[in-house]
Design a protein around this nucleic acid. Sequence first.
RNA 1: GCCCAGGUGGCGGAAUGGUAUACGCACAACACUUAAAAUGUUGCGAGAUUUUUCUCAUGCGGGUUCGACUCCCGCCCUGGGCACCA
Length: 839
Amino acid sequence: MKKYIPNKIEKKWQKIWEQKKIFEAKNPSTRSARSGQSKKQKFFTLVEFPYPSGDGLHVGHCRSYTGLDIISRKKRMEGKNVLFPIGWDAFGLPTENYAIKKGIHPSVATKRNTDTFRKQLKSLGFSFDWSREVNTTDPAYYKWTQWIFLQLFKNNLAYKDKIAINWCSSCKIGLANEEVVAGNCERCGTKVEKKEKDQWMIKITKYADRLIKDLDNVNYLEKIKIQQKEWIGKSEGINIDYKIEGQAFAEASADKQNKIISVFTTRPDTNFGATFLVAGPDSNFVKENLETFPEKEKVKEYIKEALAKADIERTAEGRKKTGVATGWYAINNLNNRKMPIYVGDFVLGQFGTGCVVGVPGHDLRDFEFAKAMNLEVIRVVIGKDGDTSEITDAKQVQEEVGIMINSGFLDGKDIHEATKLIMDYIEEKGWGKKIINYKLRDWVFSRQHYWGEPIPLIYCSDCGWVAVPEKDLPVELPKVKKYEPTDNGESPLAVIEKWVNTKCPKCGGPAKRETDTMPNWAGSNWYFLAYTFAKNGKYNWNNKDIESFMPVDWYNGGMEHTTLHLLYSRFIFKFLWDIGAVPKSIGSEPYMKRTSHGMVLGEGGIKMSKSKGNVINPDTVVKDFGADTLRIYEMFMGPFDQAIPWDTKGVIGSRRFLEKIYNLISNFKFQISNSKGVIKSKIENSELDAVLHKTIKKVSEDIESMRFNTAVSALMILVNAFYEYQESLTKDNVKNLLLILSPFAPHLAEELWSEMKFKGLACQQPWPKYDEKLITSEKVLLIVQINGKVRDKIEASSGLLQTDAEKLVKESEKLKVHLEGKQIRKIIYIKDKLINIVI
RNA sequence: GCCCAGGUGGCGGAAUGGUAUACGCACAACACUUAAAAUGUUGCGAGAUUUUUCUCAUGCGGGUUCGACUCCCGCCCUGGGCACCA
């Protein structure tokens, strides 16, 4: 008998699939389908394209790609025109660092890495449409990344601003937040400082509200929606203006009548309890008025200390509050109370107005500040258990709920009702204005690195910032010898004078190119669009192709990309939709469905890492066990969305399962060729049919809900049943088994399909349908309980009435012991399942 | 501190109101073998027990129900995310 040798089988079928172009999606698809073209309904399955690192493919990639490969293969068998593409998100720091260390051009390293990844992915039998492979570092690709940036620029959504960046004084480089590890530089360990630099910013905040609202129209996992909403952080409140009064101020300022301080609050209901104000050290209010503060020397000293503190130190200090008085006072409109104005670093200068009003009785942070500064605390909300006493302990600070007190016309009202009332009142009086604030900030789009897309702008001293004309795109990365940033933190491109110095496209005068490059996100913002029209390395952006496949029907990726990549790409897509760069018919959301996968951990449940030496190389697993085994194992290891540790011993189980199928079908072939059509049955074939159709049903449903682990387990149960009753097997049984197996173990299924001399390719057959009639068997196992405890199991015919079931139960010997001398109070009967006798 | 996910055999896990521990791994015994490996068969939560059966067990404590891993209330622990957002 032949033995199962995966390496032989797998290469063979991968070649056949590729030659026959089985997995290439057809343009255009249904929506704009014209004569003769694919009339099938489109289905766009998307996985996050990998960063081709030098380490090669990770078993974690395999897990998530196998999951979506199974879905794609099933959809194809269900008759869909499936687009399941792949590519490379190849700009990035590791490649640049490698280039710096070894002096090898990043594009050379990238080429080598993508070649490795491609080979690895192909060895796993994923049904990607390789003709649409994209690469973000290909100038033909980043031409469009630059084009998108120019559209943002032309629509006033890109602007330059001075902002504080993470600065490593040793590497002389600006670092992204992800490159800062515990306050230190990821490369050299030097403490990271803040440095102000001019950066290109993108106005994502303009889209904040739509990015929340439109989540209602998509099918994302609930936790993903929650994370997006929290990241955007919408809060509705009011900006209240207070007049400023102060002796020193009156002398220093001429327009004292109109001088105000504005604060943002979501809780104006507590405003009768306000006793002080605090401005953030980096707030506009402080910047504008610093020189006129009576206590300006103390304030300056405090600000210097506060800004020098790294984020780490701030967190380490915990909630300890510090601050300093400015010497100014604000007047509460409601009760004419004179409230001192402080500067304190617990207030964020960038959020809201950069200033807050302190209500120490009903905000824990305000309470802590009041205690530290020895300020008065006033109760304006009744506490727990009707507590109206003076607030002296943090535990008494009532924040969320309650009834108003000591608050004039608000007394006796619920805080939520009071909030509405006083907002209207303050607006009517002209003391403030309702406003919505977001935590989301504008997006820093500049990087001082080499290995990224050049920002296609030119600075002319006469015309200002001018866009590179579209016909001149792409602005290609010039070749350099050194990839290190310059001493003053400029991009390495800044030293290439020939490249930097250019002509102004507007006036023709001398001008300089922008030398910053774009962040990693730029290329991944729109890659799903590229797939719809990419063909063998050419990118012909056009509405017809985009309309054929957009929006993405199912997007799977890691939770780590929920807040950044997902949000950024949704924003960019909405923008492109707004300006008509994509067809209106596809809607303004790029992804209809988003799911996530869990990590594959190292043995023992810790993260896989080179330093721990517990990295599993997929190549080794493929070599030792086969691609199908790796696929089955990664699906079987546990729930798809959970982190599961790798277990090399467990892989053996998956291999045995595939061997069992191989042997089973080899036996079966031998059997039919010898029996001349007459087969003795051990059991009725109808019982095998019942198991088969149950399995078809379960596997079909489990794939849709990504419960791959239970789908594999159902397949195992089916194979075990087939194995045990081999003599009763029919050709049809085998056929269906191979079909539902094929998305999981495509090579083996294909091999056995051809061994059985079935027509065509397994992966091109229609997905089998289950027959409900075959599933329902005539006999059922009735569970008999007494007081909810299982006492007996009786085989009975299905559809039994309660009276008949009771009769049957009373004959049971086992029950007599329990029922003797007891009175039956109640009998609960669930048809075909259970009978519970209450005594 | 806040938000999310989870806690079930020696291990990965199954069961979302109705047989707890499916399926797989590990382990043990037996068969085949000169032997080993491979394969096959059987057993495998804990305790008590005279075959049989009983009691206990799904992080902990309560509750709802004829019946709870599953629903509700209060805690504990682990993992992930955010973190003074007014």
